[in-house]
């Protein structure tokens, strides 16, 4: 596990394999960092809920590293949070199987097309009718992130080789969303 040097506006930054314990460790770091910077509790809670969903998505996708460790030197999972005048930016990156891209892209595009009320409706129908995936996901993570964020989810897929691409996901928690209480 390798920690990157924190810039002035970087709340948290991590690169390396993610597991349940490391996520716990990163969540504790967030608490320390937001306390040290006097970030309001209401901001902390919003960052926390997006951070958990975004990291759990990466974590649930971890398994294939066992047979693709060659990806590691240049394409390890990463995560960081930046604070700016516009709000907070949470970014995750991880390798993904090319064959899974289309499904993921469809899912995010569907969520991005919805307004606040649409997201609420989708959350409720998924909560009621959704099934757990084999990876233990309830299909609610992206909807939850979009609800908190109030902005579109920004994503990209950069090809690595014929099997994998590097997937980046950016969630903005804007000042608008932070003051919407």
């Amino acid at each position: 596990m390798e920690k990157l040097t924190l810039g002035k506006n970087t709340l948290l930054s991590y690169q390396g394999q993610l597991n349940f314990e490391i996520i716990g460790h990163l969540l504790n770091s967030l608490k320390d960092e937001t306390d040290a910077r006097n970030i309001p509790l209401s901001h902390y809670k919003k960052i926390l809920s997006v951070m958990i969903e975004i990291l759990e998505n990466v974590f649930k996708y971890n398994e294939f590293f066992e047979h693709a460790s060659y990806l590691f030197p240049n394409h390890a999972p990463m995560f960081y949070i930046e604070q700016s005048d516009e709000g907070y930016l949470l970014v995750s990156g991880n390798p993904i199987l090319n064959k899974d891209i289309e499904k993921l892209q469809k899912h995010i595009d569907h969520i991005n097309a919805l307004d606040k009320e649409g997201l609420r409706q989708l959350f409720r129908t998924t909560l009621t009718n959704g099934e757990f995936s084999s990876k233990g996901g309830a299909g609610l993570g992206f909807i939850e992130m979009a609800k908190v964020s109030g902005e579109k989810i920004v994503y990209s897929f950069t090809p690595i080789d014929e099997t994998y691409s590097y997937y980046t996901c950016k969630i903005i928690i804007s000042n608008k969303a932070l003051s919407a209480e």
Binding site: I52, E53, F132, G136, A138, L140
Partner: peptide, 12 residues
Amino acid sequence: SYFNSASSKMLL
């Protein structure tokens, strides 16, 4: 004080 989205499914 906090629950993740997968937990909300179990609470339901």
